[in-house]
């Protein structure tokens, strides 16, 4: 049984169609990298999964439950944690308050998030809008983990960060992969890092999924053809 399954999903921004035919599935404990050039529909796919955009046609299932008609907060309660593009913490709450506000019962709590990101513990009383970009990204991941998700979705989690901070984020993702049964859906521009952490890859082109397979099967020719790298 797949944890997440998309079947021929289409989606619109108002009257403009952004997704045409996106299909893939993700199993429990698996890491999936969603790839594609800019504007191909990666973030739109994530927004549609999280129901920040309505599903135009097709079907999305989370743990066999069709979520087409569910509102965003109910999808989150099914165990979908989102680390949105651009971090988007609650700027006028402290680090600790950001985490507490999102907390749901489960194994992830202030202590375990602090263990994953010790820097958040050091900055726990600091307002989120006074954190560096990297720290805000850690907070966004920590906040999503505090909802105790089964599936963590990261949209461009390392974008615009310094190399050292990016490395810290990737280390945390490796740690999540190796030490928990969490499923990860990752969108990022760093192909080399994605190859290291992902079990399988789905490539989007013009709003449709055009290639999917294991990371090992992702050949240079495929990368050249769809990603232009």
């Amino acid at each position: 049984m797949s944890l997440l399954s998309l079947k021929q999903v289409a989606s619109w921004y108002g009257s403009t169609q952004a997704l045409f035919d996106v299909s893939f599935s993700l199993e429990e404990g698996e890491v999936l990298a969603l790839m594609g050039r800019n504007g191909m529909g990666k973030s739109t796919t994530i927004k549609t999964i999280c129901k920040m955009l309505p599903v135009g046609s097709g079907e999305i299932y989370i743990a066999s439950k069709n979520i087409n008609t569910l509102p965003s907060f109910k999808v989150a309660r099914l165990g979908v944690g989102l680390v949105p593009e651009g971090r988007r913490c609650f700027p006028n709450l402290t680090v600790e308050e950001n985490l507490i506000a999102a907390a749901r019962p489960g194994s992830w709590d202030l202590l375990s998030v602090s263990t994953l990101f010790p820097r958040l513990h050091e900055r726990r009383s600091q307002m989120a809008n006074t954190l560096s970009g990297g720290e805000q990204q850690m907070l966004a991941i920590g906040r999503a983990l505090m909802t105790n998700p089964r599936l963590l979705i990261l949209d461009e989690a390392t974008e615009g960060l310094a190399p050292l901070v990016r490395q810290e984020i990737w280390s945390a993702l490796h740690s999540l992969k190796n030490n928990s049964n969490l499923s990860l859906l990752v969108v990022d521009k760093s192909l080399s890092e994605l190859k290291q952490v992902a079990d399988k890859v789905v490539i989007l082109e013009r709003g449709s999924s055009v290639w999917s397979g294991t990371t090992a099967a992702l050949s240079d020719a495929v990368v050249q053809q769809y990603l232009g790298i």
């Binding site: 920040m52 949105p84 506000a101 999102a102 749901r104």
Partner: peptide, 13 residues
């Protein structure tokens, strides 16, 4: 601060 972000952490605003 953000209704949308609150919804994505499972809270009904």
């Amino acid at each position: 601060q953000s209704t949308e972000r609150v919804e994505t952490v499972g809270i009904n605003p």
